[in-house]
Nucleic acid binder design. Structure first.
Lengths: 419, 419
DNA sequence: TCTCTTTAATTTATTAGGTGAAATTAATAA
DNA sequence: TTATTAATTTCACCTAATAAATTAAAGAGA
């Protein structure tokens, strides 16, 4: 039923695997639960859970949920028709939504999405700003992000001291050690430190992440089966990125994100945005497909090399209309995707391989070439031991995932702060 | 000086991060240390260390080392010329070599190496058996391995109950979940369970690992700087494999080893042993180089497609003699190696990238093509953030690494067993 | 030689945070 | 109303840490 975590008795204090922290983690993952169930899933004794929760309630981190109607048990035998059983009814505990709020920002080519959520992870408000991001310099970008966050705080009447954390997902390359943002196709500036000014402006923890990592976390949070073992999520869209998640967490050597899009398919190939030639991205990303299609097709020019969603939809429509040159283009993209999957499986041997992002809306046209190449490019038994999923997720997955990631960091900080 | 590990106070019992376990781990890594130093590097208090060590000594896991002459401090200011300081002299503690013994076996193409070590990791005896491994069936293989282990026990007068663990490193593919050995170029049989019969024969824990992983662990143990962060070790020899080590441990999603050798360089290429075409291994492994060289050169045939060390030495000698066709072959191998490194860096973004194995004895001839291709194939800033090391290690590294790996498992089992 | 200083290790009292068993509480069923 | 049931809390105790004080073993100096 609910996964029985190995009990870790008689330890304490040390933050992330303190029993306090584990209670919060379980509640975060499995929603409102009564104390008995918390004891079962953490392996702690009832008295321990009782004591810990009463302290957490005193700190206002938890609260007793009055929606006693919702049932937490999966076993229908234990309930009568009203969802009520004999005996003292269980009191459901939840993360107290009023404990504080967090903000998630997704920064992409020509688009800044912002979302504010309460401590339980429910969205309170969100905004979407279309703007020519490549035209911004470092200062303007910071100001813009800060203004967006401010607008969200104001819209939900959130005083600044209630803001617990800010998560920023970026398309591009984030150095996990320094937190600096090295390069992004969405920006003309490079090697900027976005975290620091935002942290100074709000005095809240700022969490940076690659957008593929954010999507990967969002997907793993949504489907518990993906949160077990090693999962690799390839994001196909404006670029081709990858996020790696181990047991539902984005812990990794050097930053959880991979530059899979810049593996080369041959020593000579189409020009990639990165300056090198023959990158997987240069066959598969939307800008590459659109650019190549325009060499033989009459299509409207893309603003700053970046086709809009509408323009990509138009391209797909034309391809489905039966143009053999376009068909060939998408077949090429399918092969490039297969190579990305093959390299990932060969190097990482993940349990789960997830293909996500808007680029997969054209997967029907890539499928044949993709499957054909994949079979040639991966050892059969290796392919067999990896489950491949298609999730042509919409952009909301990024902020969703970023909310989860930010909350996890906020939880940890609080556990460390209160010893 | 000695790296200060974050103290993890007031927890216990739970095996692998119990404080007992951490003491053993520190001693395993840093050799004989006095109690004061143990307290410093674990962050525990003196009384805690005192109590824990006295219990470990009672269990005969530790002992007081009488080699008081050796100095454990790196700071020369704190010592006088004799290596002695004022005050009560420190009593060095060591892992008690007499606590038990372990055996490491390396199973490769036409070669079985076996080594027996005491609990402190010092080698006591070893053997080397050349035999046509591909001629063996499952039963004969098991019998052979068991006989080799028996011979080692006898040679060192080790009673069976003193054998704490057996580590077996195999060239090929090990399924970490089931422990079964799926495929190896050294064997004609597939999907065999070597661990079970050996475990039954000796009643000791059996640890299986890929040979590249064993080498990776051995290298990380030998050079502490490699044990920090994510390190990827590519082994070039009879095949091309990779081992991934995170913070000195071989923990990984699906088994710590990678099938990097079977990433494809193009959709059509030379035939690989695995049955597919264009694998990196088919350009880089010794059998491929030798096979291709024989198409235009008069060389003695290799026994069961596997050239001997002498034959490979001959090939290198001829190539250095200046045959342009051989030069081209090794350049091709250099490019294949560059692609392997490029794919690894792009996917994993490791802190350390180690190139190891006998195949690198020809690296001087591959170097130019390797460096040229590497620069084209990896994003420059990504290449810059990865340190690449050359370690054309000899075969001893495999058993060395396997000893470390086996001892770690044995330590853990003991910690769990004694609560 | 005897004492002082220094450093290592241990003893003692205390504390944090867990445990199991039993008591308490709040509901349904009879 | 009373029995039954299940969730939660109380109580007494236990383990493994800590801090402070003590003991141990050496060199240095009179």
């Amino acid at each position: 039923m609910i996964d029985q975590i190995e009990p870790r008795r008689r330890n304490s204090g040390m933050a992330r695997d303190s029993n306090r922290g584990r209670l919060v983690e379980v509640l975060r993952r499995q929603g409102p639960l009564p104390r008995v169930e918390l004891a079962r899933s953490t392996g702690l004794s009832f008295p321990a859970v009782s004591g810990l929760t009463s302290r957490l309630i005193a700190e206002e981190l938890l609260c007793e949920s009055d929606t006693a109607a919702t049932s937490w048990s999966d076993d229908p035998d234990e309930e009568d028709v009203n969802g009520r059983r004999r005996g003292r009814p269980a009191v459901l505990l939840t993360l107290n939504p009023e404990f504080g709020r967090i903000i998630a920002v997704s920064l992409r080519m020509n688009l800044i999405e912002t979302l504010i959520a309460d401590f339980s992870g429910s969205s309170l408000a969100q905004s979407r700003l279309e703007i020519a991001t490549r035209a911004l310099d470092t200062g303007a970008l910071c100001d813009l992000v800060i203004a967006q966050i401010d607008a969200m705080l104001e819209a939900t009447a959130t005083p600044r001291h209630r803001l617990l954390g800010i998560g920023i997902a970026l398309q591009g390359i984030v150095n996990a050690d320094t937190g600096r943002h090295l390069w992004s196709p969405a920006l003309s500036v490079t090697d900027i430190d976005l975290a620091k000014p935002v942290r100074q402006a709000f005095g809240a923890e700022v969490v940076m992440a690659n957008d593929a990592v954010a999507v990967a976390l969002g997907l793993c949070a949504a489907e518990p089966s993906l949160a077990q073992g090693l999962s690799a999520t390839i994001m196909v869209g404006h670029g081709v990125g990858m996020g790696v998640v181990v047991d539902g967490e984005a812990r990794w050597g050097a930053g959880a994100s991979s530059e899979i899009g810049h593996i080369k398919l041959g020593s000579n190939g189409p020009q990639c945005r990165c300056g090198q030639r023959g990158c997987i991205e240069a066959h598969l990303a939307d800008y590459a497909l659109y650019r190549d299609a325009r060499t033989f097709l009459d299509l409207p020019p893309a603003a700053s090399q970046q086709p809009s969603e509408a323009q990509m939809a138009l391209l797909r429509e034309r391809a489905r209309g039966g143009d053999p040159r376009l068909e060939h283009l998408f077949q090429q993209a399918g092969r490039a995707l297969a190579e990305a999957v093959a390299a990932t499986i060969s190097v990482l041997r993940p349990h789960h391989m997830i293909l996500a992002g808007p680029g997969l809306q054209a997967f029907d046209m890539m499928r044949h070439a993709y499957e054909e190449r994949l079979e040639q490019a991966v050892l059969p038994w290796l392919l067999k031991s990896t489950a491949i999923y298609l999730r042509p997720s919409e952009s909301a997955a990024i902020v969703e995932g970023m909310v989860r990631r930010t909350l996890r960091v906020v939880d940890r900080n609080h556990m460390e702060a209160t010893e």
